[in-house]
Nucleic acid binder design. Structure first.
Lengths: 142, 142
DNA sequence: GTAGGCCCTAGAGCCGGCTCTAGGGCAAAC
DNA sequence: GTTTGCCCTAGAGCCGGCTCTAGGGCCTAC
């Protein structure tokens, strides 16, 4: 098995990134320029795709490009940077859990609002049952 | 109780938004221009702050400004837009839960990587125990 | 041999969301 | 009366992260 290889188009399809974005990431140093075929076409290995997949997840969880670049650089430097990479990822994991917590707080608020709306919609089909506490009609429920 | 009121500076402090951002949000239609004092200074009521607080939560959960503007417009139109607002919020709640799920997927991947690193760091303090499967030293662990 | 399809580079453009600047006003404190 | 501090408007600028354009090459099929 010659360890399947992919063109940029195939890589794009498989990672969900656009061809543009792949080249852009490369230019930004998110990964070393991949092998080229004669004629200059990029050849992506399965390893490359795995790396790209990791990148998309890091991006999706809000890691900025410079941080990913840094991580990529460490990877390229070999095993002796393991501790640094470990630290970087731990830091990012915290960032992720923070985001999840924040989203839960938002979710709670939105759910509360929704519950209020549902109560109103249920009890008084169309009537503005809410007492006239808002002469300006400014804050009917927000 | 004259229902305490706030200057823009105080509102900024209390909402965690900058003074600039408050004016920016207003210009963007996230809320109706608040009452002005003689001289033109904005006066924020507690209600306004509550609304702003909701806005920050909506923003923090990724609702774009145009959507918040739309919601604000509906609020201003009064009770008869309740259903529309309800729909909008339900839609957004789904968006939030999607984000949480996505973040969990990222978290899983990162945690997995971290576990790998930890195993390596534990077993072979400094040695590149990982077998020489990577002649290019390209992918020591990613 | 030429048309179609995919690839290349360099660099400009766009979009959302702020963030800041310039230039100026009001009002209380010294 | 001027300094200090907060406020005002209009509009420009910035940043991250893409996204697209222009101009061109290679290869395969017809």
């Amino acid at each position: 098995m010659p360890s399947t290889s992919f063109t940029i188009g195939q890589a794009a399809e498989r990672t969900g990134l656009s061809v543009h974005t792949l080249r852009f990431y490369e230019k930004e140093g998110l990964f070393a320029t991949p092998v080229r075929r004669v004629g200059g076409q990029r050849v992506y290995s399965e390893n490359d795709l795995r790396w790209l997949h990791l990148c998309t997840r890091l991006r999706a969880s809000g890691m900025p490009l410079p941080a990913i670049r840094e991580y990529a650089a460490l990877v390229r430097e070999g095993t002796r940077t393991m501790r640094a990479r470990h630290a970087l990822l731990r830091h990012h994991r915290e960032h992720i859990t923070d985001q999840i917590e924040e989203l839960h707080r938002c979710l709670d608020l939105v759910s509360l609002k929704l519950a209020m709306y549902e109560e109103h919609l249920a009890t008084d089909a169309d009537d503005p049952l809410w007492p006239g506490t808002c002469p300006t009609e400014e804050q009917p429920l927000t």
